[in-house]
Simulated scan of single mutants.
Amino acid sequence: MTSFPQDDAVAHASPAALRALIESRRAVRRFTDEAVPEAVIRDCLELAVLAPNSCNLQPWSFQVIRDPALLARLHPVCMSQNAAKAPVIIAVLARPDTWRQACQNIVDYWPEPEVPARIRSFYAKTAPFQYNQGPLGLFGLLKRQLVRLAALRKPLMRTPNSRAQMRIWAVKSTALAAENLMLAFQSHGYATCPMEGFDEVRLRKVLDIPRQALPIMLLAVGRQGEKGVYNPRLRFPLEQQVTWL
């Protein structure tokens, strides 16, 4: 991964404000019929795509569903759960297939008049070698063998070197963006519910989802309705899940 220019001044949210925002977010399963303004949705999506991501290739896309007829068709696809009655549903898609265009986008949208030579070189040579798996994944197979040999001499980044690893690569970055998206809506006073309970085959028949895109969640968005939170929050003790070394 390469480094990118940073702003000299870094803004810091207060720990108390951040804790309050995160603690206020719950998975809400009942919503009112109140519409979510497009300006709010756009603002939240802009914050979502500020999430950190691998090599800045931004392997995600979003489909915002507001049309009542389309929402009605999605409801049974989502197992007819209450959360799927929200006024907005956002399909959050991981995109392991967009890396090549993203490499070009880095150069096209570089935020300075001149693209540094190291950036051009990285996205013209290093990144394509790293993410290209070739037809039927055969180039990835070759890279795995090369990495095994080269890693005998020094530490190396060993993935992604298969189509399956590319899917994991894309999902990791997209999940970070999804968390940004949920917290952004929370800051505007709108509740969310990330839904994994849906029939992907039927979802692809209802929505125009690119073949290689991976629907990792359907995010329900709206104003929290009565009895929208079903149960008290439960998290396991930190000591069970954290090791201090």
Rank of each mutant, 00 (worst) to 15 (best):
A83W: 03
K205T: 10
R30A: 06
F185P: 02
H75K: 13
D67Y: 04
L183E: 04
V206S: 03
V221E: 00
C103P: 02
A91L: 07
S61T: 08
C103V: 08
L71G: 03
A13I: 13
F4I: 12
D43E: 13
R167N: 15
R26P: 06
F4T: 13
Q145G: 15
V36H: 03
S187R: 13
W99V: 01
L142M: 11
P237T: 02
P128H: 10
E200L: 13
R144I: 03
V77G: 07
A213C: 10
V206T: 07
A124P: 03
W244T: 13
R148C: 09
R204I: 06
W244H: 14
L141V: 11
W60I: 04
R118L: 07
P194G: 01
A13T: 12
V10Q: 13
V171G: 06
V229R: 05
H188A: 11
S162T: 09
Y109E: 15
L138E: 12
S187Y: 02
R163I: 14
L18T: 14
A9H: 13
A83L: 12
Q101S: 14
D7A: 12
N180H: 13
S3T: 14
A124F: 06
S121E: 14
R153M: 12
R235L: 14
P68Y: 00
R144K: 15
A11P: 04
D97Y: 09
A69I: 05
R118P: 00
K154R: 15
R148H: 11
H75V: 09
